[in-house]
């Protein structure tokens, strides 16, 4: 694991609170366009969702390097693998459900086993997809991708991190899965933040409890930690944006400094961030872990805020969960 220049920074980055929330998919579309201007080896594939995944911006600017594959995700993955084998750096995008579920065996064989340089950047991860309901809400994608050898799995917390992630993975050689969201999310990362694969970002290490979060739950955890602080519960927040490979060093040091770990994700509690953290800690430094996430169920229609409420993913829910977990140890 490389140096951890981000470690120890306290609270939110300067000026972030004033900026309007932005969807990570919107940032992706813009960064991809810029990458396309700089590098002729970048090619983009989509499966009839380029207006939603925001790859449409790249498509408009570079029609020769954009391949709409139609509603054919399996073929999209294979074609992306082929393009990478011809020396291109393909970004293949669609909704997370279809990207990881419909084309899992294709990802397994032609991306991971063949170790091709394919960037799978999926949007519409999690329940904040909202009104489209369960068929479109990927709650198992991280689990599906994490179990594949050679795969790197990244879940950016905000637009700032998304930009850095996309630029970073464009230079990394090998299979990558990046999970983005549909809904707007507040800025949480410092302006000068630079993402590194496998390096968690520590907002604060808590003496009582530490929340390991990824994606939209990072902002939630920050709010929850503020509330808990007022109650005298020193709560740390770590953005574990790389879910694979896990930042084991940070995780270990955080686990050593508090008696309770909370994981928080907009994903099933099975096989995602919570699963990864439990697997590592149970073998290396057993401490109580409470997983916050979708509790082995499908989503449903509704606006994102209502969905977060019914799945217990608001800051207030998180506070309640932390208090209860503390009372049990």
């Amino acid at each position: 694991m490389g140096e951890r220049e981000n470690k120890g920074q306290e609270a939110r980055g300067k000026g972030q609170e004033e900026r309007k929330p932005k969807a990570t998919r919107d940032e992706y579309g813009e960064v991809l366009l810029e990458l396309g201007k700089k590098r002729s080896d970048i090619v983009v594939l989509d499966a009839d969702l380029s207006s939603s995944t925001k790859t449409g911006k790249f498509a408009k600017a570079f029609p020769d390097r954009f391949f709409n594959m139609g509603i054919a995700e399996q073929d999209m993955i294979g074609t992306a693998a082929g393009l990478s084998l011809a020396g291109k750096v393909p970004f293949a995008s669609t909704f997370a459900v279809f990207e990881t579920g419909r084309a899992w065996d294709q990802i397994r064989l032609t991306v991971c086993y063949s170790n091709t340089n394919v960037k799978l950047v999926a949007t519409h991860g999690g329940i904040t997809v909202g009104e489209d309901g369960a068929s479109h809400q990927a709650l198992e994608d991280i689990s599906l991708m994490r179990s594949l050898p050679n795969m790197t799995v990244i879940v950016p917390a905000d637009a700032t991190e998304t930009a850095s992630v996309i630029n970073t993975v464009s230079e990394y050689k090998g299979p990558v899965y990046v999970r983005l969201g549909r809904a707007k999310v507040p800025y949480v990362m410092p302006d000068d933040y630079r993402f590194r694969i496998g390096n968690a970002f520590t907002f604060h290490v808590g003496k009582d409890v530490n929340i390991i979060a990824a994606g939209i739950t990072v902002a939630t955890a920050i709010k929850a930690a503020e509330i808990l602080k007022k109650d005298g519960i020193d709560t740390g927040v770590i953005n574990m944006s790389t879910i694979k490979p896990l930042d084991e060093k940070t995780l270990l040091s955080v686990a050593r400094s508090s008696k309770l770990i909370i994981t928080a994700e907009e994903h099933s509690i099975i096989g995602g961030l919570g699963g990864a953290v439990c697997e590592f800690l149970s073998e290396n430094h057993p401490v109580p872990v409470k997983r916050i996430g979708i509790r082995d169920t499908f989503g449903c229609s509704g606006n994102p805020d209502d969905l977060l409420k019914i799945h217990g993913l608001t800051p207030e829910d998180m506070v309640r969960t932390v208090r209860k977990a503390i009372s049990l140890i």
Binding site: F67, Q74, T79, G82, L85, R108, L109, T110, S114
Partner: peptide, 18 residues
Amino acid sequence: VSTGSLGQGLSVANGMAL
């Protein structure tokens, strides 16, 4: 490219050709 799970080679061939 690795093969063995049937039905995938033509997609990869297309990508290479493109």
